[in-house]
Design a protein around this nucleic acid. Structure first.
Length: 310
DNA sequence: AATATTCCCAACCGCCCCAAT
DNA sequence: AATTGGGGCGGTTGGGAATAT
């Protein structure tokens, strides 16, 4: 059953990558572009398996990767998208183009999961404290609300920023930025042959029905232009007034509020009211909208306000 | 200062999908 | 139709760094 893992071959090196290996890999990709990973170890002499080369590139060396210091908005998006998509990190990462799925997954597992559970616990505590004299419904674990799992974990009381990186890999990435910008769009993202955002959105809804969790939204923002446009769409301050306030997402609201409280206490309420993820939610969940994705990329705030789709 | 414990993240592992044959 | 193998994804782990004792 199953093939032996490609990295089980004799002579294949494991463990941390050295700066020298990074330079070899980056140089090769700079010349040939990402893809055809099987040929990378052969052609470079790297004693790494193809999979390891791909992961090193996509998770660490690829230009444009932002490391550490997740902003409150990024945290909010991750929480919200996780509630919508589950642990489909690649799909979630497609909405945060500067973050890798691995980075998001790690951040979720080490920070956000704990924060959410803490918020749940705190909220439940306060609810049960009130319950003796009140009859309101509990705010969490309500099947009619957002579907945050009760198994999700608790939160520390404060946000602590991730460590700053000043790695050699980052420097290598910076060297590559110029090259990447000047090369063709197809060479920038390794999955340049992937389906269009329109098709991806359609496939997402159908794959949900089929129980297929593979690659749902991965291609949604696959070209750089689309990514940048969606990024600009997600600048909450610029578009907040356009979106109706999302309902039934107490955890995301609380998380954003908590994070904002630390970042900028005065803006908490404003940010909550501006939080636009209802758009993503609707877009993801409403098959009918999938045919308008490309148009959405070009929406101005004024247009989105008047668009009957919302 | 030394040791123990906890935290974090880069990297690996195993499974799955799908195109090629 | 069945097989093969490359590539992608999510889950997990190992080791170094940070923190606590």
């Amino acid at each position: 059953m199953g093939r032996p893992p490609c990295c089980d071959k004799v002579g294949i090196k494991k463990g941390p990558w050295t700066p020298e290996e990074d330079i070899i890999l980056v140089s090769y990709i700079q010349e040939h572009g990402p893809g055809n990973w099987r040929s990378v170890p052969t052609n470079t002499g790297l004693m790494r398996c193809s999979k390891s080369c791909r992961l090193r590139w996509t998770n660490y060396l690829r230009p444009g990767i932002k490391r550490g210091n997740f902003t409150p908005h990024e945290e909010g998006m991750i929480v919200h998208l996780q509630s919508l998509l589950g642990n489909r990190w690649a799909a979630i990462a497609s909405y945060l183009p500067q973050r890798t799925d691995n980075d998001i997954k790690n951040y979720w597992n080490t920070h956000l999961k704990k924060k959410i559970k803490k918020l749940q616990t705190d909220a439940q505590d306060s609810y049960y404290n009130m319950a003796s004299s009140d009859t309101i419904s509990p705010p969490f674990n309500d099947p009619t609300s957002k579907g945050y799992s009760s198994t999700e974990a608790p939160l520390p009381s404060s946000f602590h920023s991730s460590s700053l990186y000043a790695s050699s890999a980052e420097n290598i990435s910076r060297l590559l930025e110029g090259w990447m910008r000047s090369s063709s769009p197809n060479s920038y993202h390794e999955n340049s042959q992937q389906e269009s955002p329109l098709i991806a959105a359609n496939n997402y809804s159908s794959s949900q029905e089929n129980g297929d969790d593979q690659g749902a939204g991965c291609a949604l923002i696959n070209n750089q232009c689309g990514r940048e446009q969606l990024e600009s769409l997600l600048v909450f301050e610029n578009i907040g007034a356009c979106w109706e306030k999302p309902v039934g997402e107490p955890l995301a609201d609380q998380l954003i509020a908590a994070a904002d409280h630390e970042h900028n206490q005065g803006e908490v309420k404003q940010k909550q009211e501006q939080y636009p993820l209802c758009f993503l939610e609707k877009w993801l969940l409403d098959e009918a909208t999938s045919g308008h994705v490309e148009g959405l990329m070009e929406f101005s705030p004024e247009q989105c306000c008047s668009n009957p789709m919302f």
